[in-house]
Design a protein around this nucleic acid. Structure first.
Lengths: 214, 214, 214, 214
DNA sequence: GATGAATGAGTTTTCATTCAT
DNA sequence: GATGAATGAAAACTCATTCAT
């Protein structure tokens, strides 16, 4: 007869979930309107709660934003772990790595919006942007560098491959992400097809002639 | 020896220059802080005038922003005209075109900051972003497409999927631009070198094998 | 002995009373200074609250004014109901009706100030003024017309009574009201005495000679 | 060949007329929008001149308003002089006087708007309102009182309480004026007809029975 | 814990007034 | 005399933050 009957989320559970919920709501609001244009009340309303409750968990709007950014960043942090498990030739592994990076970045709404916030609010919070660099961008570029070096050493890839190669390999991911951020659905693109074409083009430039013949 | 002697800015001149000055100052402020976080007074102070004066020329902050965006966009509008005058083989012209686009986009602070604003405030003003697309991005991509098609037709370039996707050729420009917007001087990159490496890589993928031998 | 003991205004009560309080304060301020010269903060200060609180209940100054006008109008709306209960000869009822109208209009500060606002801000809000006409002025004039017609039919009043008679009967009410609005206490008048004299004069003109003899 | 050819208003004439012009324009603007809501620039624009010019002739907006009020008041000051020239019986002269007062007050736009300003801004400027009282209202009421007293003395009029309250005789003038101020053209009235009916009614109450028979 | 009324500092916008030209 | 650019004080309105209930 009590309220709790049939209720899967007990008060305690709900309470435990609150900070998480709030951070998710904050992500949506901040991503859509930017820091300054978002009101704390917007975040609360999105959850059906009130401003005051938000302040119960986060002392200021600024802290809320930073926690949100950190939370959104780490919530997708486990994905790159797949990198270690790649198998096949260097070319195959580079291709696989780029596709994973594409899926995790340009093709992932959350990551894309974090990129938007990094560009928009970056001046306010350089540490956060740098943090994201350490966690995601640098490791991916490092992995690409390692793979290219391995390929060169093994003779699979051209010997004259430049140090700038990893950035070049990853560049289309940024383009697709920025395109989606700027044009949303107004100018649709087939990111996956672009990515395939990109990979084919750059790989054909990377591979030794003999390999290309195959 | 009258006051006017040596006075370069008469009242009329000043009056004529004011809108331009204000738009320039607005560009700096909005680019640095975003729309919502910029105060009209910030713009005025940057010029050593008061906010009332800004309102003498622009009726609202919103109009000021839009005029600033339009002004900043068109003030760099003449550069792409160089495209028509390109000479040489298709490969040479593609290379030249990409370098011009790089100079005008990733390497131009004004254009880069407009990209920032497009990403940050795009949701508020899709028409502006689309307008920039019509004026700059679409023409450049169209020129790339035309050059690639010409090269394919003449046998200079390979026919492959990349040939149909000029986005792939321009992708590094976006990467450099976004990198600079996110990391400024904290993680410097040699954009020019990246661009050269990018061009070499994609061109080696585009060219017929025989040409590559050269 | 807790705080609540003796505390008449709980939060809920206060909340429920606030709109009313604010409208009353707004009435005083707007009546005293007019729309444009009244600051929202003036209204708040009168209540010992801050302007932010006023905006919690009314979205704009304009809405506050309109709600205030409507509220002040309707808060005195029940009085005319007394009309139906009049008894006596037509002359007696006309006299009674005019005295009631006088009490409710010229002699009622609230109604007088609404007249001031109608005259002062009428150009901005014709609908409000017209609304007051429908609710108060028209019914009173209609009642007067009905009484005069009845009196003519029964022979109590002169047959040649003009259609303009009701306005003439009510005219002194306007004069007294306007006088008080213009001169306040600087040139006091005895409104009641004027009203008595007015009624006596016009009734003596309305009544059949025979009746006057009485 | 000079500009002045064919120009009837020389610079000097124009200059001499300026203050007058400005006061007229100020009257229109203040009457239409009230003191606080009228901008000095509105007044200037109405004349096709600029704010600065207004300040050449009037030091502050407040002074402009007061001068305007005084000017508008005195520009109609000569009309009541007709009173002295009235001829005929007391009844005839009272009737004529009331009609003149009606024409000069309720039926005269300028006077009506001054009444509006007196009601609207009266709290700010009691002296002005009192001044108008001395100049127009009091003399008219005094003339009425004198006429009634003369009539009573000569036996032409009844002695009753109304005889001592000329306000009663003039009341309809206020009603018509206020009506026009509140309803403008939205609820038209025939002021002249109302006035005639009013005069007839009050005179029939004032006159001795014997006279009425005539 | 949760609420939401209240605050007050901050921002946009207006406009009376000044003054160099 | 006229102008109109510039000022800055003031007013409408917003919103992060607090706190009594």
């Amino acid at each position: 007869m009590t309220k709790r009957v049939g209720k899967k989320t007990s008060r305690a559970e709900r309470r435990a979930r609150r900070p998480h919920e709030i951070l998710e709501a904050a992500f949506e609001e901040f991503a859509a309107k930017g820091y300054a244009a978002t009101r704390v009340e917007d975040v609360a309303t999105r959850l059906g709660i009130t401003k005051g409750t938000v302040y119960l968990y986060f002392p200021t709007k600024d802290v809320l934003f930073q926690e949100m950014f950190r939370h959104a960043s780490t919530s997708s942090a486990d994905r790159p772990t797949a990198i270690g498990g790649l198998r096949g030739s260097c070319a195959e592994r580079i291709r696989a790595l780029l596709l994973i990076a594409y899926e995790n970045t340009a093709n992932d709404r959350k990551t894309r919006e974090l990129l938007r916030l990094s560009v928009a609010e970056g001046a306010r919070l350089p540490e956060m942007v740098d943090c994201r660099h350490e966690l995601f961008i640098a490791p991916t570029l490092a992995a690409l560098t390692a793979l290219v070096e391995e390929g060169v050493k093994s003779g699979e890839l051209r010997r004259d491959t430049a140090a700038e190669t990893p950035d070049v390999l990853a560049s289309l991911i940024f383009q697709v992400a920025v395109w989606l951020l700027m044009f949303a659905d107004r100018k649709p693109i087939d990111g996956k097809a672009l990515m395939e074409a990109h990979i084919e083009l750059v790989m054909s430039g990377l591979l030794q002639r003999s390999e290309q013949m195959v």
